[in-house]
Design a protein around this nucleic acid. Structure first.
Lengths: 243, 243
DNA sequence: CGATCAGTTGAGAATGGTCAAATTCGGTGG
DNA sequence: CCACCGAATTTGACCATTCTCAACTGATCG
């Protein structure tokens, strides 16, 4: 093993057994460590020839702005996730990415990625495979927006976020630390911030969930799961499929 | 060139310059041609060890059912698209796929795909790259659901579908043939079928768009673009990025 | 100690849903 | 060719969820 098990390496190894060449290439992606303040926009929608980042510490979010000033958050990223990979794969980017908290990330130039993919095709497969799993989360999010009430949306979102963070080792069944504001929730869930506030109050009064002082408490996990029709075992993974 | 330019081959070549081995492997995916009636469910949510399909003729849609009986259509597939690729990549599938019209498709066994990917890693990269572009469409769809009014949603959806079909050579600026029912639209757009009908009537009365007898007419293309804030050049592609 | 930002609450308005019933359309069998 | 059937579309009346606007509180930070 050439490099220590970074979150990204661990994630990729779930899909493809990586060779030494793959791991060396991956290690080369991790020069150029940067840090950014909360709210810094790392990737800007519409720009060409962007660089990408690998998130090492903190939270980020990807979103699209609308012409009326509203925004829709597509997904949140946690350590081990790529930021702006698609902006490299498609020369131009269709969304923006900004830091939610102060973050640490490795900057990866477009040429690093394209050259790396050409020389280490199995690494390319692994990275894209992982990107494809991220799509499953976007799909779940889409279903949430399309067919659930505000209350179900909030409950489902929190459960899903909790499940995701548990995989990375942050948080457990009782709750997790959550640096998001109610505005983040509103922009992610397609609701107004005012209504998010009301829904949170109601969930708290019903004894289901509390979100206060940067932490989410699952006061009644089973009740939330029932309310949101949450599929408990949903991000499972067994072992590499490609050897 | 070993096989004729199938829709899929053309699509993949946009991302990665394919070798003869890649093309042979791809050709091997196209034995086992099948045909299915409209409404046939090809992939069922939750099943394990599914096979995948490559759509050759007709339309399909991928969707998730909710426990209350509602469903959310995630995306529509047209010739050249994979059906159920993720059910192979992740051993189990998180959504269902059904035929919208009568369809023709090549059945591809999980083992075909995994063996093929192991032997032709650049093909793997190309297929996953294309899957990643499909995600961009899912993202656009998500934004549509989260932050637009019913009228904007319908307009945007139709424009996007039109743009996509124009790329495949079906339809033009004046409109396209569309086998969807208003129920399909409702399930895709997170609206009730009744409301979809009302919105369509309104768009027709405003002289913007007509959807009747299986065809969509863009009566006022510029007006629609303005209403939906549609990004006209959005699925562009230049040439293979990976040589 | 202002200033700013996140959270909270109320009142009224709007968008879109539900239920129920009619109408049209595309086949299909006699 | 016509009568009929089921599916898709259309319309109305009423209702619910969620939004908008506006004001107020509380915390944090130079």
């Amino acid at each position: 093993m050439l490099i220590l098990q970074s979150p990204l390496t661990r994630k990729l190894s779930a899909f493809v057994a990586l060779s030494d060449v793959d791991l060396e290439t991956l290690a080369r992606f991790h020069r150029r460590r940067r840090s950014f303040l909360a709210k810094h926009e790392l990737i800007h929608e519409g720009q060409k020839n962007q660089t990408a980042f690998i998130l090492a510490e903190g939270w980020a979010c990807s979103y699209k702005m609308l012409s009326d000033g509203g925004r829709q958050i597509v997904d949140f990223q946690v350590p081990g996730d790529f930021l702006g990979l698609r902006s490299v794969l498609f020369r131009t980017t269709d969304h923006s990415v900004e830091a939610v908290t102060r973050i640490e990330a490795s900057e990866v130039l477009a040429s690093d990625i394209l050259d790396g993919f050409a020389n280490a095709p199995r690494l390319a497969t692994a990275v894209l495979w992982a990107a494809s799993r991220d799509e499953a989360m976007v799909v779940a999010h889409l279903v949430n927006l399309g067919r659930r009430s505000a209350e179900e949306r909030v409950a489902h979102f929190m459960l899903e976020l909790g499940a995701r963070l548990k995989l990375v080792g942050i948080g457990d069944k009782t709750g997790f630390d959550c640096p998001l504001t109610q505005y983040h929730l509103a922009d992610a869930l397609g609701l107004s911030a005012v209504h998010v506030n009301r829904v949170l109050r109601h969930l708290r009064e019903e004894g289901l969930l509390t979100f206060q002082q940067g932490r989410v408490y699952f006061d009644d996990f089973a009740g939330l799961v029932a309310l949101a029709c949450f599929d408990t075992d949903y991000l499972d993974q067994d072992g590499p499929l490609l050897r």
